[in-house]
Write a protein that binds this DNA or RNA. Structure first.
Lengths: 134, 134
DNA sequence: TTCTTTTCTTGACTCATTCCAGAATATGGG
DNA sequence: CCCATATTCTGGAATGAGTCAAGAAAAGAA
């Protein structure tokens, strides 16, 4: 796997990393369940620790739209964004609209040293959209 | 005040609305404390209810950057965004960079019916920036 | 293999937010 | 101005994601 990040390779970590890759945008609880398919004995704490560690190492990205619990995804390093369904909470990836590393330019940065721009599009997913208009 | 929104005008609601106007980007707890300066007896539940109601009515906007508790602001209807300090959590307003109702265009909307684009810039505020480089 | 350090397990705990049932109150009609 | 009624507020308990802490386990280096 990826011990390139100077991380110890432990069973829980491998399982967590695998689970995140297998279930993009999954919340912590889903990941815990997925991990326990392989290692029934892992504690939730180990999963939380692993997720934090992997996030710190940049192998995984944590996202948390308003009103949602933390979710994790494995697609990293390409500055993409998300669409979130207001009704069912489904999340989908969206490539950055404006260019490469674009959105990093705020009109007035108030003296902040900005290093990332996060974009969340809110709306209704196809399913909820049709369900609601019927 | 604004009963135009077809809301009952109750003391707690007026106090909450005033508090949100007085303390932009304040979290719920700060608002509760601010409200209790005037009405010492208000229950936290009343504040939560009022905030929800006001949010639903569009008189107040709820924002919740990753890893933060819910915060509320009164500047609404102008599609502005926020800069959040990674270190101290301070939030500042940023006018929309791309134009009027701009960011609403995702490169690929996956069939979602998008109605809002939310942008959060992450970085360090002036204070934390200088404190860290020293 | 053995040692040292990091990571996991277990279980208690925090704290924002929500749920509930009964009391209080704002609004509209009389 | 007063009352009826639906909405809102009070008070207190409950939920649930996430964190803390101490000792056991296991990964990596010698």
């Amino acid at each position: 796997m990826l011990r390139d990040a100077a991380l110890r390779v432990t069973r829980p970590r491998v399982a967590v990393l695998t689970a995140v890759h297998a279930h993009p945008h999954a919340d912590t609880d889903s990941i815990i369940r997925a991990v326990r398919m392989e290692l029934p004995k892992v504690s939730h704490q180990a999963v939380y620790d692993s997720l934090h560690t992997l996030t710190m190492a940049g192998l995984v990205r944590r996202i948390q739209p308003s009103g949602s619990v933390a979710r994790y995804e494995s697609r990293i390093g390409d500055n993409h964004h998300h669409v979130v369904c207001r009704s069912c909470g489904t999340i989908a990836d969206v490539d950055c609209a404006v260019g490469e590393v674009p959105c990093l330019t705020a009109s007035d940065d108030h003296g902040f040293r900005i290093d990332e721009a996060e974009v969340v599009y809110w709306g209704l997913c196809p399913d909820c959209s049709t369900a609601q208009s019927s």
